[in-house]
Computed example of a mutant assay.
Amino acid sequence: MSTVPKDVTGRELKVGQRVAYQTTGEGKGLALAEIIKINPKTITVNVKHWNDKYLTRPFSGVCIVEDRP
């Protein structure tokens, strides 16, 4: 049985959406990234900081960021 991936607020996650996620380390905060892949229990996002190119986060660890009209 396959479940529909949902963000922390219950909205369906899709490739190409922009999401906010919590960063790690001493400079904890929020960062924005684009979903590039949906895995069985996590998503992979494209990041543009540090040496990382991609990060994985659990579905409940991200929140969709809507574009303003």
Rank of each mutant, 00 (worst) to 15 (best):
M1N: 11
A31R: 12
N39V: 00
F59P: 05
K28W: 04
V19D: 02
I64M: 03
P69C: 09
T24H: 10
A20S: 15
S2T: 12
N46Q: 09
K41C: 02
K37G: 03
K14W: 01
E66Y: 07
T56N: 11
P5Y: 06
K41G: 03
A33D: 06
L30A: 07
R11D: 11
I36L: 00
C63I: 15
N51T: 11
E26T: 14
K28D: 06
E12A: 13
F59Y: 15
S60P: 02
Y21S: 08
N46E: 09
K48N: 12
N39C: 03
L55W: 04
K14T: 08
C63A: 15
D52R: 11
E12N: 09
D67C: 06
T9H: 12
S2Q: 10
I38F: 01
M1C: 10
G10L: 06
G25C: 08
K14R: 14
A20D: 07
W50L: 14
N51C: 04
K41A: 08
K41M: 04
L32R: 06
K53V: 06
K37Y: 01
I35Q: 00
G29S: 13
A20G: 13
Y54H: 11
G29F: 07
D67I: 08
K48P: 00
V4H: 01
L30C: 05
G16I: 08
R57D: 01
V15N: 05
G16K: 05
P69S: 14
Q22I: 13
V15P: 02
Q22L: 15
K28M: 13
P40N: 06
T23V: 11
L30H: 07
G61I: 04
K48M: 08
V15I: 15
F59R: 04
I64L: 10
V15W: 01
V19Q: 02
V8N: 11
I35W: 00
I43V: 15
K28I: 14
Y21G: 10
P40L: 04
L13N: 04
L55S: 01
I36M: 03
V4T: 14
C63R: 14
E26L: 15
S2Y: 06
V62M: 06
I64K: 01
L30K: 11
G10Y: 04
L32K: 08
S2C: 06
E26Y: 12
L32W: 03
P69T: 12
I64A: 03
V45K: 00
L13G: 05
E66L: 13
N39T: 04
W50F: 07
D52K: 13
I43M: 02
T44D: 02
T9N: 15
K6T: 14
V19C: 07
K28A: 14
G27N: 15
V62A: 12
G25F: 03
V45R: 00
S60Q: 12
T44C: 00
G25S: 08
R57C: 09
T9W: 06
T24I: 13
F59E: 05
T44F: 00
N39W: 01
Q17I: 07
R68Q: 14
K14N: 11
G16E: 05
K48C: 05
E34F: 06
T3G: 07
I64F: 01
M1L: 13
S60K: 13
K41E: 08
K28Y: 05
R57I: 14
G16Q: 04
I38P: 01
G61L: 04
M1R: 09
Q22A: 15
T23G: 09
N46R: 13
V45N: 00
K41R: 07
